[in-house]
Amino acid sequence: MTTRLNPYLNFRDNARQAMEFYHSVFGGELTTSTFAEMHASEDPAEQDKIMHSQLITDNGLALMAADTPNSMDYTPGSNFAVSLSGEDEGELRGYWDKLSDGATVTMPLDRAPWGDFFGMCTDRFGVSWLVNISAGQSS
């Protein structure tokens, strides 16, 4: 797997509907995981919300999205993040180190519940970044 740059959209309670719409527009394969399935929230109101969804089209387009947890701020206009993901740990850690320098780290790059290494930060220019290193190559 090569490193990809993926749009990651955040919603407040309607990520499923949005991604189903994008699926109808672009086709491809849509996968979704709820907060309950990933054991990612103890808030009963969030159990059926989308923790992560991914649309991969036949021609290689990728779009990801999630519902913003109730405990996090949601302001339309700041409802996006840039996601870097792949298996090249050295490359992705290098990107993380540079992006997180002078940034606000909201989740340090560390082992995630799904087995990969994952981190979140808002860089010095106010851009939100997600970095995910696949467990297949990471240690």
Rank of each mutant, 00 (worst) to 15 (best):
T3N: 11
I56Y: 03
G136D: 14
E87N: 13
D43W: 10
R16V: 00
S71W: 12
N14C: 05
K49S: 02
S24P: 04
S139F: 08
Q17C: 01
L99T: 04
T32G: 02
G86N: 10
S83A: 13
T57W: 03
N70F: 14
A62S: 14
H39I: 04
E87W: 05
G126M: 07
N6M: 11
L109Q: 01
D13R: 13
A66T: 07
V105M: 02
R124F: 05
F35G: 02
V127S: 01
N70L: 14
W129K: 04
G102R: 05
S83Y: 10
S134L: 10
N14E: 07
P108G: 03
Y22K: 04
W96A: 06
R12S: 11
T68V: 11
R93Q: 12
S100E: 04
L84K: 02
A45N: 15
L55G: 01
T31M: 11
A103E: 05
L99N: 00
C121V: 02
T31P: 00
Y74L: 09
T68N: 06
L55E: 05
S33R: 09
L61T: 12
R111V: 15
E91N: 12
D88G: 06
Y74C: 11
I50R: 02
N10E: 11
A66L: 06
R16Q: 07
L30R: 06
W129Y: 00
A112P: 03
M120Y: 04
E20Q: 12
N79Y: 01
M72S: 15
A112M: 10
G119R: 03
F26E: 00
D101V: 04
A62P: 00
A45G: 09
W114C: 04
M1F: 07
S53L: 01
A18M: 10
P7S: 11
Y95T: 00
G119K: 02
P7C: 08
L92E: 05
T32Q: 15
C121G: 01
E89V: 12
Q47T: 00
V25M: 09
Q47V: 04
G119A: 08
M72A: 14
A36P: 09
V127T: 12
F118T: 03
P76V: 15
A62T: 14
S78N: 15
L99R: 00
P113A: 05
P113N: 08
S100W: 02
P69A: 06
S24M: 12
F35T: 01
N132H: 06
D88Q: 10
L5H: 13
Y8R: 01
V105N: 07
V131L: 08
Y74R: 12
L30N: 07
S138W: 10
D110I: 04
H23R: 13
T122M: 10
N79P: 12
R124A: 09
S134M: 12
P76R: 13
D13I: 00
E89N: 06
E42L: 10
G60C: 03
S24E: 13
A81Y: 03
M64C: 07
D110C: 03
P76L: 12
A112T: 11
H23E: 08
A36R: 13
V131K: 00
E87C: 03
S100F: 01
E37P: 04
R124K: 15
M120H: 07
F35D: 03
V127E: 02
V105E: 01
P7K: 11
V105R: 04
G102P: 05
H39P: 01
R124T: 07
D116S: 13
S33M: 13
S128D: 10
T57H: 06
M51C: 14
H39F: 13
T34R: 00
Y22I: 06
